[in-house]
């Protein structure tokens, strides 16, 4: 336990020990205790872990990520309340797998844990969504899908988020994507001008799907009649 105190000083809520780490080695060092606990809980899905600059990365099987994140979120000794990021990494070495990365943070215990799952390039890129655990994963996963083309199974609304809908050139952050896009500049301009933002980003689509019952009567009538913008 004393070893954990040097790196993870906070052991209980309200502990006022400063959490700033000092003299952290570049490689190695004390791992986040959640890594070992995760390996004990999911022995078949954890491939190992490494500690770099005091940050622990656990390599896992992609298929198990939803269960793992659920457990890390709920287990009283871990309590990862906050999902900081969902992203992906593609390496310049084309043979190497694409990594999907989840950054979890426990505010209560001052812990940070990074989960990485490797996806082989031949198969469809697909991982389970963690939206059922963290609602904040919604846009993070959409961005990851938009930029890398990774499908998050179970996401309620997996659409492009940065590029416009109907973007046909592919997934911009993939290494095989040319930096200026696949189409010529004039073609890109024509495609962009053909997009009709008002038809896509309608009030109906953005806000009122869940709250339809609470809308004023006249707005309900107009939306029920197929009106798109709600103006």
């Amino acid at each position: 336990m004393s070893a954990f105190h040097t790196v993870y000083p906070a052991t209980a809520p309200g502990d006022a020990t400063p959490a700033t780490q000092r003299n952290v080695p570049n490689r190695g060092g004390t791992a986040n205790p959640s890594a070992a606990a995760l390996a004990a809980q999911f022995p078949n899905a954890v491939r190992g872990h490494e500690v770099v600059n005091g940050e622990t990365t656990v390599f896992i099987d992609a298929a198990a990520v939803a269960d793992m994140v659920r457990w890390l979120h709920d287990a009283p000794d871990h309590r990862y309340e906050y999902l900081s990021d969902v992203t992906a990494v593609e390496y310049r070495d084309f043979e190497r797998e694409i990594e999907v990365v989840w950054h979890l943070r426990s505010i209560r215990l001052r812990r940070f844990l990074r989960l990485k799952a490797r996806l082989a390039k031949g198969a469809p890129l697909s991982v389970p969504s963690v939206w059922s655990v963290y609602k904040g994963a919604d846009w993070l996963e959409r961005e990851c899908y938009d930029m890398f083309g990774i499908t998050f199974e179970g996401h309620p609304d997996l659409r492009r988020i940065l590029m416009w809908e109907g973007y046909k050139e592919g997934f911009p952050l993939r290494k095989d994507f040319p930096m200026r896009g696949r189409f010529s500049r004039s073609e890109q301009l024509k495609n962009a001008l053909a997009a009709n933002p008002e038809a896509r980003y309608s009030m109906e689509e953005l806000t009122v799907a869940d709250a339809f019952a609470e809308l004023p009567e006249d707005m309900k009538r107009r939306l029920a009649g197929g009106e798109k913008t709600g103006e």
């Binding site: 040319p178 930096m179 200026r180 010529s184 500049r185 073609e187």
Partner: peptide, 23 residues
């Protein structure tokens, strides 16, 4: 004109050697 746009945009930038899959 579209042809002029493509003509002007081609030779510049740091991605000259990248390939396109569509014209």
């Amino acid at each position: 004109p579209a042809t002029r746009i493509d003509e002007l945009s081609e030779p510049f930038g740091n991605s000259v050697h990248q390939t396109r899959s569509a014209p």
